[in-house]
Design a protein around this nucleic acid. Structure first.
Lengths: 257, 257
DNA sequence: GAGTGTGAATCCTTTCACAGCT
DNA sequence: AGCTGTGAAAGGATTCACACTC
């Protein structure tokens, strides 16, 4: 789903399934933690537990990357970190711009997770002239009039949209026209983009609504029979967060305050 | 994904596929927009375009809810809004607590999308004593010592975790112990919860990493010529238009202002 | 003995295409 | 004539289970 589906059938099989790609960052995070604790190797079982997936899935996922494990032993942590980083394109530095420096944009700018893993906040952009020059997370906000120039000067190909829904499509169009080919959209709107541009969306209220659905069901079930099924036993989360959706994101409006 | 699955073979079988559930909020948003414009009915084709999915999928999704359309005509907007809201459990009011009122927590508290659709921010909770009493989005922050009491007094069953990663599991445990059964997790950690508790996660850096993967692939593909440099100095120009999504084939506008 | 790598089976999701209602 | 609702086909993703390697 999301993202570059298209060019696939043809050419060489660098064919890693989307579902696998979506889990690689998870594995990477777990591996990084192990690496920091100087753990030299892990079994699929251990790593799977740390990442919150099951081990068969993890092994299958890794099999798409190649045979990086050792039978009877497990995986070399450092080596795997490198391989996954390379596969994800994180061995290089990606300059990112964030457009829309409201509460959310500021939160994103301050979010350490970006900088830590291959991403660098190259610029913050906002339409409000009053914001211009003000530093957020140590980076001065620039006015959106200069959007195209900023994109080009910094060679940015990834943009983050954190504007109100009403402004998102226009911002998106300008980003794309200026050369951005990947967009992470936080605005609750469906973005329309040309082919070849990837959009992923993160939609807070949608996630809550999905939870509400399950919550409601639980309430209904209880009514049926209080059952004696042993509760508990521990499971792991997982969920995929942010349904990825097609090349575009979500839906039209109804906006926030 | 997530969610406690399978208990019981399910007598009732309110069996709506997860993938469908994840799209219902999307449809709902599109329908709400139509409703506000007083549009009385929509065809699956139109609604699908607005939601960014294809019409066959949409019809199949709706078929799990029942037969709410009229052949030859389409769907009654108001009626569908009601049916989907009910299915998602949004006809009732869900009190939500947000734990961790940093940049992100504040952004969430201010996010209008919550209040608008069945959710009510019942309380903001933070571990920093200095925050206590300070209003964020008009709601006074409360100290985390009182977490259990707050949950119980407000009958909260949905919690949002926006704390740093290190604090997330402990907060999660306390929420669950106090009665919360659905958690939306923004902290970059895998949460372990008892069976019967749903966790969905939203992970910003994972989304970016997925984009980087595809971005890298694009760069590699056009490697036939030019460059030699990193992704930083890209000059793009592909983009052939025609986002696939819209089954109708309307070509997106690519121009900015 | 321990643990990876992977065909084969299973399950879930999407897409097709058309019968059937209005 | 138009559009929904849905079996059936196709495609993915997950899980099983075991041969194979260290």
């Amino acid at each position: 789903m999301a993202t570059g589906r298209t060019h696939r059938p043809a050419t060489r099989s660098r064919g890693i399934p989307e579902a696998t790609v979506a889990r690689l960052p998870l594995y990477l995070r777990a591996l990084t933690a192990l690496s920091e604790r100087s753990v030299p190797t892990v079994s699929s079982e251990e790593l799977a537990a740390a990442a919150g997936v099951n081990s068969a899935k993890l092994r299958k996922d890794f099999s798409y990357l190649g045979s990086y494990g050792t039978r009877g032993v497990g995986y070399d942590v450092e080596y795997l970190v490198y391989q996954i980083s390379r596969e994800l394109g994180l061995t290089q530095d990606w300059p990112v711009v964030i457009v829309g420096i409201g509460n959310l944009g500021a939160a994103l700018a301050n979010y350490g997770g970006f900088a830590s893993r291959g991403f660098r906040v190259a610029a913050l952009i906002d339409a409000d002239p009053a914001m211009a020059g003000k530093p957020v997370a140590g980076i001065p906000v620039q006015h959106s009039d200069d959007l195209e120039k900023i994109i080009q000067d910094n060679g940015v190909s990834i943009g983050v949209i954190a504007t109100p829904a009403g402004a998102a499509q226009a911002v998106c169009d300008r980003l794309v026209a200026a050369g951005v080919t990947s967009i992470l959209n936080f605005a609750p709107t469906v973005l329309t983009v040309p082919d070849g541009v990837d959009v992923r969306k993160v939609d807070l209220s949608i996630e809550l609504q999905i939870l509400a659905f399950h919550e409601q069901r639980k309430a209904g079930e209880e009514a049926a029979h209080s059952d004696g099924t042993g509760p508990a036993a521990v499971t792991r989360e997982e969920s995929d967060a942010s349904a990825d959706q097609g090349p575009d994101g979500d839906v039209p409006a109804v906006m926030p305050a």
